[in-house]
Design a protein around this nucleic acid. Sequence first.
DNA 1: TGTAGTGTCTCTAGTAACTAGAGGTTCAAG
DNA 2: CTTGAACCTCTAGTTACTAGAGACACTACA
Lengths: 138, 138
Amino acid sequence: MYSIGELSKRTKVKVPTIRYYEEMGLLSEPERTEGNQRRYDAAGLERLSFIKHARDLGFSIEAISKLIELQGHPDRSCQAASEIAVSQLSDVRAKIKRLRALEKELVRISEGCDGEGVSHDCYVLASLADHELCRHGH
Amino acid sequence: MYSIGELSKRTKVKVPTIRYYEEMGLLSEPERTEGNQRRYDAAGLERLSFIKHARDLGFSIEAISKLIELQGHPDRSCQAASEIAVSQLSDVRAKIKRLRALEKELVRISEGCDGEGVSHDCYVLASLADHELCRHGH
DNA sequence: TGTAGTGTCTCTAGTAACTAGAGGTTCAAG
DNA sequence: CTTGAACCTCTAGTTACTAGAGACACTACA
């Protein structure tokens, strides 16, 4: 049996975050000692590792909830799981695309100013004030 | 003079967001009609456009505050502005890098499951449960 | 067995950048 | 002069946590 602190060390999830996951229903309520402290078993540790890994991959709490639901029904079709993963992937790709456009624009803006002039002539400020100066859509 | 709704249409910033920016100190308090409604002038419109553009580029409210500060002192060095832009750029690049790693991993995970099996054998679920299955660091 | 020190408990509030809604007032067109 | 859209303020909700207060529990050592 692990205390919440132990679990935290093993999974690298902070203690308050573990309690938060419990409140959100991602972790089921563990046993308690007589003194009301949480004690986790191996299943609790596994579950938390799953959550942590999914969060690291950017899955939302909601998505993780659904995935956990599925895990609990090993006989059910895993289409939903596949869909969640695919949607997460397209999410990530959309973000990358957008960030690349921003990157281009920021490079251009930064290059226009070496920081040695005076605010009045600053290309950074001018670029932000006037969208027309932008080369790429964003 | 523009009403808040007019300003909203011209800048594509939603009305409550404009009020929010005012509360955050990004926009100075505009004049009011006798009936207490906000009325903006050309300067207000320009300022809001600046904010909108910067937000679109991912600058934080805090960063924008600093940039506006600088705009108000045209004689001051623009080094700070340059630094803010550069830091925003490296932020964006870091995000892209991280998202690329996630993308790779998600592609791999998604490809392992066509959604036609059963949850018990699902590669998506297995991958999330076991970090060891991951090829790339994240 | 006593005690010190660390870990844990619950609860509230704060973070970023908004968004939504309630309940009431003002403006502008016809 | 009326009607309906736009506006006002205020509170609370969103996401995924994080921080802090004040109190209680556990463990190791003397």
